[in-house]
Amino acid sequence: KLNEKEKELCQMVRLVPGAYLEYKSALLNECNKQGGLRLAQARALIKIDVNKTRKIYDFLIREGYI
């Protein structure tokens, strides 16, 4: 299910792929509902370490998901 970049992200932030996909889905759904997504909203949405949230958020922006 994951592409190579997503696999690298999961290894870097030490997330299991299932958890990453869950977080990605939640962030994309919220982004679609709101018409955009700020980091503060992402942090409130997924209750994990803020540094991990930041890396996931930055990755999703860089890859054009949000």
Rank of each mutant, 00 (worst) to 15 (best):
I48P: 05
E6A: 03
Y20M: 01
R62C: 05
I46P: 08
Y65G: 07
R62M: 08
A40P: 09
K33V: 08
R38A: 15
T53P: 03
K1V: 12
V50R: 13
L39F: 15
L28A: 07
Q11R: 14
K5N: 06
E22S: 12
V16P: 15
N32I: 11
G64L: 01
N51Q: 08
C10E: 00
K1Y: 10
Y20G: 00
K55T: 12
Q34D: 08
C31L: 06
P17Q: 04
L9P: 00
E63C: 01
E6Y: 06
Y20K: 01
E63G: 06
I48V: 11
K5I: 00
Q34C: 12
Y23V: 13
R14H: 15
G18Q: 14
D49A: 12
L28G: 04
K24G: 00
C31R: 02
Q11T: 11
A26G: 02
L60P: 04
Y65F: 12
I61Y: 10
N32Y: 09
D58G: 04
E22G: 08
L27I: 09
R62T: 11
E8L: 12
A19D: 15
G35Q: 09
Q11F: 00
L27D: 03
V50D: 15
G36C: 10
I56T: 04
L45R: 08
G18L: 10
Y20T: 05
R43Q: 15
G35I: 03
A42Q: 04
S25K: 15
C10K: 02
E30V: 07
C10V: 07
N29Y: 08
P17N: 02
L2Q: 06
K33M: 06
E22M: 09
L45S: 07
N29C: 08
T53E: 11
I48H: 10
N29F: 06
K24E: 00
G18M: 11
E4A: 13
Q41F: 02
L60A: 02
G35M: 05
R62N: 12
A42N: 02
Q11P: 01
F59E: 00
E6M: 05
V16A: 15
N32H: 12
G18F: 07
G64M: 01
T53C: 11
N32V: 11
Q34H: 13
I46M: 13
D49I: 14
I61H: 11
Y23T: 04
I56G: 01
R14F: 02
G36E: 10
N3K: 07
L37H: 04
A42L: 06
K5E: 06
E8Y: 04
G36H: 09
L37E: 05
S25V: 07
I48Q: 14
L21D: 03
E4P: 12
N32M: 13
E4M: 10
V16Q: 15
K5T: 04
I66A: 07
P17V: 02
N32W: 11
M12N: 14
I66C: 05
N29L: 07
R38I: 09
K1T: 10
K33H: 12
V50F: 10
D58I: 00
M12I: 11
I46E: 07
L21M: 08
F59L: 04
Y20S: 02
K55Y: 09
L28N: 02
V13D: 05
R38Y: 08
E63A: 04
D49F: 10
N51G: 15
R14Q: 14
L39I: 11
A42R: 03
E22Y: 05
G18A: 15
Y57P: 03
A42M: 09
A19H: 11
K47V: 00
F59K: 00
N29P: 02
A44W: 02
Y20V: 00
R14T: 10
G64Y: 01
R14K: 11
V16K: 15
Q34A: 11
V13A: 12
A19S: 09
K1P: 04
G36M: 10
A42Y: 00
I61K: 13
L60Q: 06
L27Y: 00
K55G: 07
R38V: 10
Y57R: 07
E63T: 04
K55M: 14
V16S: 15
L2A: 04
G64K: 11
I66N: 04
P17D: 03
N32D: 13
I46S: 13
C10D: 02
R62S: 11
R38E: 14
Q11W: 00
V13W: 05
E30I: 10
E63P: 04
K1W: 09
L45V: 11
P17C: 04
L60G: 04
A19C: 09
K47Y: 03
A44G: 10
L37Q: 01
A19G: 03
C10I: 11
K33C: 06
G36W: 05
N32K: 14
C10S: 04
L39H: 05
Y65A: 13
T53R: 08
R62H: 11
K1S: 11
D58C: 02
E8S: 09
C10H: 00
E4Y: 07
L60N: 03
R14C: 13
C10G: 01
Q11E: 12
I61W: 09
K1R: 10
F59Q: 00
E63D: 07
A19V: 09
D58V: 00
C31N: 09
L15S: 03
C31F: 14
P17M: 00
V50A: 14
G64D: 07
L27V: 05
N3D: 13
C31P: 03
I46D: 06
